[in-house]
Amino acid sequence: MTTSEPDCLFCKIVAGGVPAEIVREGERVLAFRDINPQAPTHVLVIPREHYPDAASAARAGTGLLDEIAAEAHAIAEAEDIASTGYRLVFNTGSGAGQTVFHLHCHLLGGRGMEWPPG
């Protein structure tokens, strides 16, 4: 884990070098709307520090994944989707669809979610 990676898109968003529609900010996390939404509500919740994926954050043992989940729930409440249900997705690795290698949680809601997801 490093504080930031110079070529990382999400590190650039955290630093303010790339614009994003910010939904919520915390000391350790930042949330913004996905530029290619897959649901009426599609928000990415990311740590300010650079972790390449969920597994690396879990190994660090700092409680960051708990904080990301709590922030996602607070956003779901603010977006009025908490009561109807929402999905949290962490893609880990290119085979799972991860394209930006900075830990991020997709908060999806506002429509029915099918199973299996894809």
Rank of each mutant, 00 (worst) to 15 (best):
C11E: 09
A58D: 06
G109D: 02
I75Y: 03
D66P: 00
P37Y: 08
E71L: 13
E114N: 03
H106N: 03
A55E: 13
P117I: 11
N36G: 00
G63K: 11
G118I: 01
V43T: 05
T2A: 15
I68Q: 05
Q98R: 15
G112I: 05
R28V: 12
E114K: 14
I13V: 15
Q38W: 02
Y51M: 00
P116W: 11
R87N: 07
E27Q: 14
A96Q: 12
K12Y: 13
V23Q: 09
E27K: 14
S56G: 07
R87S: 11
I46P: 01
A55G: 13
G118A: 12
P116T: 07
E67Y: 05
L107D: 04
G95P: 03
E49N: 13
E77I: 12
V45I: 13
A72E: 06
A60F: 01
F90C: 11
R24V: 09
A78E: 08
F32P: 03
R111D: 00
D66N: 15
A74C: 02
E5M: 10
P19T: 13
D34S: 06
T99H: 12
E21V: 09
T84Y: 06
L30Y: 06
F101H: 09
E49T: 14
P19A: 14
I13C: 15
R59S: 15
S83C: 06
P117G: 10
V100G: 06
H104L: 05
A69D: 13
G95T: 03
V23C: 13
G112E: 09
H104G: 00
E5G: 01
C105T: 02
Q38L: 10
A72H: 05
Q98I: 14
C11N: 02
S94C: 00
E77K: 14
V100M: 04
V18A: 04
L108P: 00
D34P: 03
M1P: 10
V29A: 03
D53N: 15
I22R: 13
V89P: 04
I13L: 13
K12F: 12
C105D: 05
S56N: 08
V23H: 09
E67D: 12
A60T: 07
H73F: 02
H50M: 10
A54M: 13
R33Q: 03
I22L: 11
E71A: 10
L65E: 07
A60L: 08
E5V: 14
M113C: 08
C105H: 02
R87A: 12
G61S: 11
S4E: 15
H106Q: 03
C8N: 04
H106F: 04
I81A: 05
A55N: 12
L108A: 02
V45H: 03
P40E: 01
A20P: 07
R28Y: 06
E77L: 12
G112K: 13
G110E: 06
R24G: 01
E21W: 01
R33P: 03
Y86S: 04
Q38S: 08
G93H: 07
T62R: 14
V29Q: 06
